[in-house]
């Protein structure tokens, strides 16, 4: 196989946009969570559970976690692109990271909808 430098994957913009939009989602959720904490001073465990048992809050938390995972995917892949030079190693690492994030998504559903 020829060892020529190849670039021009024709993606990048959409990931860059995702990273910005997901960051905004995270900021918004952090503010909401902070608001919940301020509005309910001295929350105990049952009150904390009650907050997360609320379906809109569950969905909001899930959207936040999806944003975290998508944001992490782009960031982690960027790190792999910089530091893992052999293509086979980079691809393996990217597949493992993607699988982990899919697993985390399932796990997040399991945890969030496990709260009754």
């Amino acid at each position: 196989m020829v060892k020529r430098e190849v670039v021009g994957a024709h993606y990048g913009l959409i990931d860059w946009l995702y990273q910005r939009v997901t960051a905004l989602v995270m900021v918004a959720y952090t503010l909401v969570l902070f608001g919940v904490l301020v509005a309910n001073p001295g929350m105990d465990y049952s009150a904390w559970r009650a907050v997360f048992a609320n379906v809109p809050f569950k969905l909001l938390t899930f959207v936040f976690l999806l944003a975290v995972f998508l944001h992490a995917w782009i960031g982690v892949r960027d790190i792999f692109m910089d530091y893992l030079k052999p293509v086979s190693l980079r691809l393996t690492a990217e597949i493992l990271a993607a699988l982990a994030l899919v697993f985390y998504t399932g796990w997040a559903i399991h945890i969030l909808w496990g709260i009754k």
Binding site: V7, G8, A9, H10, Y11, G12, L13, D15, W16, M81, D82
Partner: peptide, 11 residues
């Protein structure tokens, strides 16, 4: 098009 690439511009 030439710059729409994860390496060329988005590094």
């Amino acid at each position: 098009d030439n710059l729409e690439d994860p390496y060329r511009l988005f590094r």
